[in-house]
Each structure stands twice: as structure tokens, then as C-alpha cells.
Design a protein around this nucleic acid. Sequence first.
DNA 1: CAAAGCTGTATTATCGATCATACAGGTTCC
DNA 2: GGAACCTGTATGATCGATAATACAGCTTTG
Lengths: 284, 284
Amino acid sequence: MKSSVEPLKARRIYLLLRDRIIAGDLPPGGRLPGEPALAAEHAVSRVTVRRALDLLEKEGLVQRKPGSGTFVHDSRAVRPIVADLSNVLSHLIDMGRSTDVKLLSFGYVAPPEAIAESLGLKPGERVQRSVRVRLIDGEPFSYLTTHVPEWLGLTYSEAELAARPLLELIERSGVKTERATQAINATLAGPEPAAALDLEIGSPLLTLTRIVHDPSGRGVEHLHALYRPDRYSFHMDLVRIGDDGERRWSPALGRPRASDTAKIDKNKAGEKPTRGSRAIKQRS
Amino acid sequence: MKSSVEPLKARRIYLLLRDRIIAGDLPPGGRLPGEPALAAEHAVSRVTVRRALDLLEKEGLVQRKPGSGTFVHDSRAVRPIVADLSNVLSHLIDMGRSTDVKLLSFGYVAPPEAIAESLGLKPGERVQRSVRVRLIDGEPFSYLTTHVPEWLGLTYSEAELAARPLLELIERSGVKTERATQAINATLAGPEPAAALDLEIGSPLLTLTRIVHDPSGRGVEHLHALYRPDRYSFHMDLVRIGDDGERRWSPALGRPRASDTAKIDKNKAGEKPTRGSRAIKQRS
DNA sequence: CAAAGCTGTATTATCGATCATACAGGTTCC
DNA sequence: GGAACCTGTATGATCGATAATACAGCTTTG
């Protein structure tokens, strides 16, 4: 299998430029540095820069004008979904966007040690492992791997997992969930997540690891979520707390404010604002 | 300038394996899949897998035993620093670790449009831009770019910025800061952050963008922070809120608990990804 | 108009990552 | 002991991304 050697320097430049565009660092409509300048900046040949720009153009992020320059295309194509800290997407649903879940894998396995430890399992105990992909408007944006102790996983079926939020199933079994800890980090896309999220291997991803505990402190769910950063990000409002000598911030609680939800998806179908429709809150 | 073509497939596999090890997916002390298996899994030749393992071994993350296998080195290598939501590092300092700040760049410039907008600046207004790197125990872990309206930036000197927290300087000028919004995301390291954080270009990074407002809602600081995910991550405790039909989480307030702070970075692992000089050959 | 800068296009050459293959020598386990 | 793993090592060939260079045609600017 000879397979292809991918254009990696070029792709990297593509990704970097793409990031800057999405981040708004390069103003929409503005001109980016000339090809020779970019070549020098990244210490590559102009040919390579050219290939990166080809990709950007093919994705519609950029428009080239011969003799003039290369410009950031106005229609800001990609704006991330906004989620608050608790990872709630309900306001998305309120806005009439459809989310969907695909179950990629389901089964009972021996857990990796780190997961066994975080769930407080005894050696030898097995877990239910599931991998799901969440879509919004048909596009995948998150890749969820969950591990649940076997005794708990057996209280629901594969079909139920595909259809209903895991947390709901857990509670249905009588387990109370009141506390959780989570960590947010970044990583690179491996082969499976890349395929599921429609990304290149090596693309950056946001990660969220959450461990849910029942009132006794026992771990009942281990969630590992990977998010496409161009389609998802965490937002939060902060307020100052502590005495004025102390420079501390604290998350502002309460429902997402109007200004937050307003940021969602600017140009995509300016639907009616906040229809109090029924909620199919899907979440994990 | 021919310069080198980097071993990119190999490096990618290296990064992916490294991630899995750090994440604890591959249990410390455990054996990883054989070289032929890894080669098949990533659809590359064994030689390439080998190169990835060479890097892991050189960093001490892995130990190879001829005839037996390749094992995850026990000394739990790199534990990220834990920060709570408000991005407070004070507990680190409490623990006797030394943090340091290096000022890389300081000046007054015309802001990118996105920043001007977020700070609510009038067209033509200039901003003070600074780039700083934060170190812990001598190792860089975050790359901070701040933009402050010119009128505010002029109230302190470059030397003061290098020595004192920006927020303190802002308050000293009489501006009150009570609210902020922030977003967390992921991206890839560009040339400058990569150099400053001692990373390869294309490494994954955690990003934090925070905009601080004064009581009138005027933006007074735009902070863009990049974090090395192997040295820094966000942690938080969550509690359930809402009526029981509602599956919502809310961050638990209060100071970081002991169990959190205990997780901080155990032993420092070494060696930057060596990879020769190449690259940053600025030829402006 | 003319200079300067830009993108489009073409050609040639190089170099190194990667592949495919083979064999040596150690370990594990039955 | 011996089969079946594993890592270590060596080899030659390939192939494609990248570099270097040159020139065309267009646009902008003074």
C-alpha cells in the first residue's frame, strides 16, 4: 500500500490561515498578505502557500483576484455553536435547529485503567462503552464516548441509548446524579474521530471530560466529548467576586442571557426569535 | 532554501499516541499495541510507526523492551496544571511553585476589526497590544495577547506591564471591571506561539478569549490566551440545578477543593520535541 | 503612462519521508 | 523445546511534496 503522502506543510498553512479567518483576526473582506509574504513568513515556497490558498478558496473562505490580491470572503461561513458551561444546547433547539444523534458503537468491555479508577470500579468490573456522534442540521460537531458501569448500563437497551439522553436513562434506573467534575482541554483528531466528524486527522479538537457522581460519590458516568472547534465552543459570562484586592472571576449563573443566544448563528436563517416550542432536550 | 521536509506522518502518530498516554487511555505501565498493529491501524509502514515510538522514547514517555514490547513509562509524565474557571492560578502559587512572565512585545497599533468591535472602539482608535508568555517553574505554558484601548494603556508603562497583572493596572487607573465574557476553544499553534511555548507548529492548543467590561458595558480589555494542553487545563465542579425534569448542570462556586489542587503536575517531564532548528528562519 | 505589486502558470530538480521486505535476536507461553 | 510473538536493524526503491526560477497578464497607484 503505497498510499498518498499528503501535502502536509500546505495543509498546515491552510489550517492556520483558516483559524485566523474564523477567529476574525483577518477581517472579513480584508486582504491577506501576498503569496510571497506568506511564503516568507512560514519559510516555505510560494508554491506551497499557493496550495494552501487553493484549499481556502475551494471552501469558499477566500476569494482570489488576479492582479489584486486574496481576500477573505464576506459570507462568514462558519460560526461555532455557542454552548454555556453546563454544555446545554437547549437554546439551539429553541431556535429551531435540529440536532440528531448517531450511535456508532455499543458494547460491554473492560475499561481502561484511568476510566475504571475515575468510576471507582473494582478490578475486573466491566463497563458499557458507547460512541455517539451528534449532528446539528445534519453536520457532525461532537464525538461522544461514554463509559457506564455494567450494572447501570444493563438497565437500558441499545435502542434506548440511541434515542434518549443518557442522563435520563441513568436517572430512570433510580440513580440520583447530583455532582460532576469536568475538565476542558484540547487535542488532535485521531483516525476514528476524524472520520466521524468529517475532519482531517490531526485537526484540533476541544475536549470535555466529565465524570458524574451519585450522592454517595460513586461514579456513574464517564463522558469524553470531542468537539469541532469551528462548530462548537464554550461561552460564559463572568462577574467579579471577592474583595477588591482580589482579582477573581466567577461564572455568572442563571440562564443564558439574550446577548448570548443572539450570537448564535448570525446569518443562517434568521428564524423567529425564541419560539417557546416544545423541548426535546437531547443532551448527554 | 530547500530545508527539510519534516516527518509528518510519524509526528502525527507520535502526537496521537502521546495524547492517549497523557489522557490515561493507555494505562501507565501497560503495553501498547505492537509495531505491526500500530502500522496497520494508522495505515502506515512499520518504519514510520517506529519513528513515532522513537520520539516517545526520547521523551521518556515510553520504554521499549526488545522481544517483549513497548510500555508506557510508569513515572506519570506530564500532568497538566489545573485551573478553575475563573482562570485563577493562586493555588499554584500557594503551593510554592514559581510563576513568571516574559513580555515579548509591546506597542500601540491599529486593532484588527474583530477586536475593535469587541472593545467598542470607534474607527481609527488605536490600541495597546502586548504579548506575554507565562512560565511555571521555568517552563512556558501560556501565550497571552492583550489589547487595551489606547487611553487606558497610556496609564501604565511597559515595565509595569511586565511586572504586574494587567487587571490591577487597569483598576489602578480608576476603571472598574465587573463583568466579562469569555469563550473557550481549540486551535493549532502558529509559528510565533509555537516558538514561545516551545512547541512544534501545528500542535493543539487550548484558547481562551476574554473581554472585560467596565460597569457601563464598555470593553476595556481583550485577552486572547493560548495554553499548552499538556501543561494546562480547565477544571470545574458541577451541581445539578433546576427541577428534576430538567437536566442542567451549573458550576459549583467556591474555592477549588483540595482534591483538585492535588492533581497538579507531578514531575516535570523533559525535553522539548527536539526536531532541529529548521523553520523559523525569518527572512523579512 | 509607467512602475510596482499581485495572482496565474509552467518547468525542472531535489530531497526526504515513506514503503516493502528481509532477517537477526530476545521474550513469552504452552 | 519450540512456536509465536516482539523489538532491533538493514536495504533499495519510490513517489510526491516542496523548492527555485521565470514569465505572463492583471490591478493599483502615483
